[in-house]
C-alpha cells in the first residue's frame, strides 16, 4: 500500500521548526536576560555597575550586606512571609469550603451568591481600593497584619476554580461516603480535601506568589515601616538609592530569590496551575 503523501516536505518542516526554535530562543533570552543582569549587578562593585560584562570582574557581597544592615529588609521579608503564608492557608481553607458548598450543597440563593462572587472578577483592585481602604480604616485595621491579610483572602478566583473542580467529582463518591456513615464535614475533610490536593497545591503557589508580589494594597494601608512588605520596601529603597543600582539590584535579588526558589522546586505544579487556571 502507498503511504499518503505528506502535506509538507521534510525540509519545509525543518525550516519551520528552526524558525520556531529561533523565535522561542529570542523570547527566552529577552525574558531571562534582565534577571541575569539583576543578579550580575547585585554582585558588582559600584564602579562596575555600567560595565557591559555580565560576569562581574570582582564579585562582592557588600551590596547584600549593605542592604541588610542599612535597611530593615529582614523585617520586610518576615512580614511578607507571614502575610503570604497566612493568606494562602486561610484562603485555601475558606475557598475550598465555599467552593464545595456552591458546588454540592442545596440552599436558597446559591446561584445568586455564586454569580455575585463571579461578577467580582470584572472588578480590579484599583477600582475598589478607595472603598476598601475606607472599610478597612473603619474596622480599625490600618497598619496591622489583619489589614494586610483579611482583605486579600476574599477572592473569587479560588472559589470559582474549586467549585468547578468539585462539580467534576462524581456524586457517587459522596453518596458512598454518606452510606458509609459520613456527614457533610467528614465528607469535606476526608474525601473532598484530599481529592482536591493537586488543585489546592497549584492554588497555594499562585496565592503565595501573588501575595509575595503584592504592592498596591500593602502600600495603601501601611505607613508603619515595621509592617512594610518587600515590594513596598523595595519601592521606597529605589526612591532613596536611585543612583545606586548595585544596592537596588541586590535588594531586588533578595526579593526575587524566594519566588525563584519556589519556582525551581514547584515547576510542575506552577505550570499545572497556569494551565488549570487559564492564566497567561
Amino acid at each position: 500500500m502507498n503511504k499518503p503523501g505528506l502535506a509538507f516536505s521534510l525540509s519545509q518542516v525543518r525550516i519551520v521548526r528552526g524558525v520556531q526554535m529561533l523565535v522561542t530562543l529570542i523570547l527566552a533570552v529577552m525574558t531571562v536576560f534582565p534577571l541575569f543582569w539583576m543578579i550580575s549587578t547585585a554582585f558588582k562593585q559600584p564602579s562596575d555597575v555600567f560595565s557591559m560584562n555580565l560576569i562581574p570582574e570582582a564579585p562582592t557581597l557588600r551590596n547584600f550586606v549593605y542592604v541588610f544592615t542599612e535597611v530593615n529588609f529582614l523585617r520586610y521579608l518576615f512580614n511578607t512571609l507571614v502575610v503570604s503564608a497566612s493568606v494562602t492557608l486561610i484562603a485555601l481553607l475558606f475557598h475550598s469550603m465555599s467552593g464545595y458548598a456552591l458546588a454540592r450543597l442545596r440552599f436558597p440563593g446559591r446561584e445568586v451568591i455564586f454569580m455575585t462572587m463571579f461578577s467580582t472578577f470584572l472588578v480590579s483592585l484599583p477600582v475598589i481600593i478607595v472603598p476598601l481602604f475606607i472599610l478597612v480604616r473603619t474596622l480599625g485595621m490600618l497598619n496591622s497584619y489583619a489589614g494586610l491579610i483579611i482583605p486579600a483572602i476574599f477572592n473569587a478566583f479560588g472559589i470559582f476554580l474549586l467549585r468547578q473542580y468539585y462539580l467534576s467529582i462524581p456524586r457517587e463518591l459522596e453518596e458512598a461516603a454518606v452510606i458509609d456513615g459520613a456527614g457533610y464535614w467528614r465528607i469535606y475533610w476526608s474525601l473532598i480535601l484530599p481529592l482536591s490536593r493537586p488543585l489546592l497545591s497549584s492554588l497555594a503557589i499562585l496565592f503565595f506568589l501573588t501575595n509575595w508580589n503584592a504592592f498596591l494594597w500593602p502600600l495603601t494601608i501601611t505607613s508603619d515601616q515595621e509592617l512594610w512588605m518587600v515590594q513596598v520596601g523595595i519601592s521606597a529603597f529605589k526612591g532613596q538609592y536611585s543612583a545606586s543600582w548595585n544596592y537596588i539590584m541586590a535588594a531586588s535579588t533578595i526579593v526575587a530569590a524566594p519566588t525563584l526558589i519556589l519556582f525551581l522546586i514547584f515547576q510542575r505544579q506552577i505550570m499545572d496551575s497556569i494551565k488549570t487556571s487559564g492564566l497567561k
Binding site: 462524581p170 457517587e172 453518596e175 458512598a176 454518606v178 452510606i179 456513615g181 459520613a182 474525601l191 490536593r197
Partner: peptide, 20 residues
C-alpha cells in the same frame, strides 16, 4: 432515617471507590 442508620451497604455502578 439517614442512610447510616439503615444498616445497608451499596455497590455503585462506577464502584465509587475513594481514589486517595
Amino acid at each position: 432515617l439517614p442512610p447510616k442508620k439503615r444498616n445497608i451497604a451499596m455497590v455503585f455502578q462506577n464502584y465509587a471507590l475513594y481514589p486517595h
